[in-house]
Structures are given as structure tokens and as C-alpha cells.
């Protein structure tokens, strides 16, 4: 049972493998136009595929194709969690950095010690 706060967030915080629904885009100007043009509109479904080797940008799957955007831009996209994907955690990272997120209580000891593997494999 997840409360509302944990169901909603911004795209940059989403963990890899999660399935999300776009709620709104809060960027301005050209960035907004680009994001809208690429199909980041209300109701679109987004799957977070992976992050680049250095942690930024992020790759997502949307409307049947792969799109990459920087975390800075992803931060402007408000999303709702539909499916947290396989493994533990609740879909969003909290706080700064790539942290362990909601991995506490872990379902598997391996994941408790290796948040990185969950994110990148």
C-alpha cells in the first residue's frame, strides 16, 4: 500500500525498469516544445530503460521508441508510477544521488548491498 506521495514524482527520480504515466511537463520554451513533440504528453506511458554509464542522461521507452534526455530535463516531467518493475524499491529515488531509494527491508540480501545492480543491469 503506497501513499500518494510515493506514487508521484519526477522522471529524473524514477528507477530503471519502472513503468510510468506522464502527468505534465513543466519546462518552458524550446525544451517544452521538444518534450511535447517527442510524445511526453499527459497520459503517455514511459518505461525507464537505463541510465548512461556516468549516471546522466537517462534512456526511456515511449510510444514504441527509445528516447534519451538529461536529468535536468527529466526533472521537469511529472510522472505517476504504474508499475515498479521487477525487484525491490518503490520506483523513485529519494533525496540526492542515485541512493538506495526505498530498498529498506529488502526482499533479497543481494539487492540490499548492491543497489547499483538493480539500476543498471
Amino acid at each position: 500500500m503506497q501513499d500518494r506521495e510515493q506514487l508521484e514524482g519526477t522522471l529524473d527520480q524514477a528507477r530503471c525498469g519502472t513503468l510510468l504515466e506522464v502527468l505534465s511537463v513543466n519546462a518552458e520554451g524550446e525544451i517544452r516544445r521538444r518534450l511535447l513533440d517527442m510524445g511526453l504528453v499527459k497520459g503517455s506511458r514511459v518505461r525507464v530503460v537505463r541510465k548512461a554509464p556516468l549516471g546522466d542522461p537517462v534512456e526511456i521507452e515511449i510510444h514504441g521508441f527509445f528516447l534519451t534526455l538529461r536529468l535536468k530535463e527529466a526533472k521537469t516531467v511529472k510522472v505517476r508510477l504504474l508499475d515498479a518493475g521487477p525487484g525491490p524499491g518503490r520506483g523513485f529515488h529519494h533525496g540526492r544521488g542515485r541512493g538506495r531509494g526505498g530498498g529498506r527491508g529488502g526482499r533479497h540480501w543481494f539487492h540490499r548491498f548492491s543497489p547499483l545492480f538493480r539500476d543498471y543491469l
Binding site: 524550446e30 525544451i31 521538444r34 518534450l35 517527442m38 542522461p57 534512456e59 521508441f65 527509445f66 528516447l67 534519451t68 534526455l69 538529461r70 530535463e73
Partner: peptide
């Protein structure tokens, strides 16, 4: 700067 919103084509 161009916003980095780029397709990764098949």
C-alpha cells in the same frame, strides 16, 4: 544550447 532530447534509433 540545444536541449538534449534525442532518439536512440533502432
Amino acid at each position: 544550447s540545444e536541449p538534449f532530447v534525442m532518439e536512440l534509433p533502432p
